[in-house]
């Protein structure tokens, strides 16, 4: 059993939890993920590690309530226990050897983009962060990003906060104003990563994306997380989750991510109707 040490509500549907998991904390690196099971009847879900404290023995996760399992997780409070918490899984992000990097985060994906930005900064890179949300109410981790980036741009779809527009617009502006990046790291909804990758291909900038497909074991056994990258089959859990954004078949990944959409929706709506409004704010 793994104790929830702290719980914070970051926005109406995004929650941050600090979990006591010393073995995971000892090894965790930016870009890796964990798999958890809320209770003995629960499904296994992967969540990317948002932060860790090796000395304190804790791992931070940030999740959006999108289905039955994340709702059940969100119902727990500090002091409660999670049944299973395993990791760190997947390969760590490459964070050393860069001069200047643009880190792009979209929606709840910012939770994963932030530790990567932080690790890049610690490894000596100049970090420009571009983060995007649907609207002002959904903004998360603004202060955290500011503290690790040399340049910070925030955009919202409706212009209710920061600049109005998409992260791709902001990135294009930065490049057109003369910024030269060794690499772009994009983490967010598949559709956002697809368009960032299309843009950077045009601009000729190497791009890494973090994939978060459906998976069960997370250790290379089930094959559910397979993706096509550069025409080859890859398993996100052991070969990733980071991949070359110019080689990922995003359209296929988007189709595969919807396999259980109907089942999920039914189950979720049976469980609770409260969060319907915020379901797609990723």
């Amino acid at each position: 059993m793994f104790r929830i040490k702290e719980k914070y509500k970051l926005n109406p549907s995004v929650t941050k939890m600090v979990i006591e998991a010393p073995l995971v904390a000892k090894k965790a690196q930016a870009g890796q993920f964990i798999i958890l099971r809320v209770d003995d009847e629960g499904e296994r879900i992967p969540l990317t590690i948002a932060d860790y404290d090796r000395n304190g023995g804790t791992v931070t996760i940030i999740f959006q309530v999108v289905g039955a399992t994340t709702k059940k997780l969100n119902d727990l409070d500090a002091g409660d226990f999670i049944c299973d918490f395993v990791g760190p899984l997947g390969k760590a992000s490459e964070v050393s050897g860069f001069k200047k990097v643009a880190v792009i985060g979209g929606g709840v994906g910012c939770a994963i983009a932030y530790p990567t930005a932080k690790a890049l900064k610690e490894n000596g890179a100049e970090v420009h962060a571009v983060v995007g949300f649907r609207n002002r109410d959904l903004v998360i981790l603004e202060e955290e990003f500011k503290s690790v980036s040399d340049k910070f741009v925030i955009v919202t779809d409706d212009g209710s906060y920061g600049e109005k527009g998409l992260v791709t617009d902001a990135l294009r502006n930065l490049v057109e104003s003369g910024e030269k990046y060794d690499e772009v790291i994009a983490i967010g909804p598949l559709i956002m990563m697809k368009f960032v990758a299309l843009l950077t291909k045009e601009l000729g900038i190497k791009t890494v994306v973090s994939m978060n497909p459906i998976m069960i074991d997370g250790t290379g056994m089930c094959g559910g997380c397979r993706l096509t990258v550069g025409g080859e089959m890859k398993f996100a859990c052991v070969d990733g989750p980071d991949f070359d954004g110019h080689l990922v078949d995003f359209d296929e990944a988007m189709r595969r991510s919807s396999i259980y959409k109907e089942t999920e929706r039914h189950r979720y709506e049976e469980g609770c109707n409260l969060f319907k409004e915020d379901k797609n704010n990723g």
Binding site: L23, K27, F85, V86, T219
Partner: peptide, 10 residues
Amino acid sequence: VTNAVIGKTL
């Protein structure tokens, strides 16, 4: 010991 992936956790 469950939830222990050798090669990752240890």
